[in-house]
Nucleic acid binder design. Structure first.
Lengths: 249, 249
DNA sequence: GAAGGAATGATTGTTTTTGATAATTTTTGA
DNA sequence: TCAAAAATTATCAAAAACAATCATTCCTTC
């Protein structure tokens, strides 16, 4: 049997049953498991189906469509692992600050069911927190459209009303000499303030943030605990300067 | 059976019966309890259902106070006409307060392009305002999930920092003797405060709100200008007591 | 007909999924 | 309120599926 014919059979099976097992495909095509596997990988690469453990399924079925507001971000998997670990640090009864940004956003689904109070300056965070019915306070102030974050002097004042057991922040840059930094000084100011109001301070950062420096510095390395998947060249140098937890996927 | 198929079955069951027991799912999928449990955890994490003791249920919960989503369809055309008129009252350079609620929400698309500053306590408003890139401040404070509005004492304090040229509010009830009212006293307090900080005060209300009284009164009739499509029996009585503009579609 | 390359199928050790079990927590009902 | 029942969590070992590798087959091309 020729490859295109096999592919045809596979696609038709998936289309018909919304899902197809490798074993069945071995049956119906007469090819070996290895071949079917290769076929599925190829077809997935072409975007024609979705590979799942044990076979394949339709690509965009209602069931696996990402929920509203779910975004595909860069290094999504890594961020998710970091976020999951970070969320595991949150204890019932805690009041935490969640910074605007995509990594802290990922934490929220892992926070579901916990009895906590969250304060955030991120609009996306806000939407997801209400979706998950987590007790939430929003920081008041000016809304920056591009990052959907609340910033400015009003926000700074507003923040001062709270005290946090823990805070979880994103960052754009981490560097041995430059500390933690982010492009917008206004956002840096918010981060800095939130850090100062927290007992335990965590920076969530995937490997791409290391050895980068942005315009607005908001903290020194030793002022926060880093949660990351970075395992690069300078890891030991960082370990000398601050606490750093490497989360492996 | 492949994972997506199981998930499909689970989701369909939950959708159909609004709830699903683990035991039943074990039956209908042929998988073990452990597997179903893991499936439910995963689906919950994806935000597709809600885990409950013994099984799963739909994420939305029915309640007496209609949610934002429901409100938005009812009398949509009328609300839109009122919102459009209200937006036409906003002048360049103004600072306005936009109350949470579906009618004021409709105003936003008509505000596009105006050089104004908006302060709001509505999360849906917030999303739309950033989408339309309108200069926006959010009131800080506790986020009420059901109505997606910011309320509470922190919000009250926060509001005091502003002064408004105009404010636009929704309401649940308008009555000749009871004035303006809304079910949640916390929300009433916010509305009341916002009104007191504004030069020009507008209440947006479709005809269904007239001759209704809710638990929390937030203003007397004469304290605000009513924008409505109401042309009912008591229109003249209302006209005697306050300013009222009837918008015809 | 032989050389070379792609596709295939078999084999290996590894990873993921799964179901069973035991210890713990929550719910229920007397 | 207490105790039984049900559900949950955590853990583990078996089974299934997997990725990686390599020898074989089947074409093409010279």
């Amino acid at each position: 049997m020729l490859t295109p014919e096999r592919h045809q059979i596979i696609l038709e099976t998936v289309k018909k049953y919304h899902t197809a097992k490798i074993k069945d495909l071995v049956q119906s095509t007469g090819a070996s498991e290895s071949t079917i596997r290769r076929d599925l990988d190829q077809l997935e690469h072409e975007g024609l189906l979705r590979r799942v453990h044990g076979g394949a399924s339709l690509r965009a079925s209602a069931s696996d469509e990402p929920s509203m507001g779910e975004k595909i971000t860069k290094y999504h998997k890594e961020k998710n692992a970091i976020a999951s670990y970070a969320a595991s640090l949150v204890r019932d009864g805690d009041c935490i600050f969640l910074d605007a940004g995509s990594t802290t956003y990922e934490m929220i689904s892992y926070l579901y069911g916990k009895d906590i109070t969250v304060v955030t300056n991120g609009l996306d965070q806000l939407d997801k927190l209400t979706e998950y019915q987590i007790k939430t306070y929003v920081v008041g102030g000016y809304v920056k459209h591009r990052t959907r974050a609340v910033i400015g002097t009003v926000a700074m004042q507003n923040l001062q009303q709270y005290r946090f057991d823990q805070c979880f922040m994103g960052t754009n840059g981490i560097s041995l000499r430059g500390g933690f930094s982010t492009p917008d000084p206004e956002e840096a100011a918010i981060k800095s303030t939130a850090l100062s109001l927290s007992q335990e301070r965590y920076i969530l950062a995937d490997h791409s943030k290391f050895e980068e420096i942005s315009f607005g510095k908001f903290a020194n390395l030793d002022e926060a605990y880093i949660l990351t998947n970075y395992e690069g060249l300078y890891l030991n140098d960082y370990k000398e300067k601050t606490n750093i937890k490497v989360v492996t996927t």
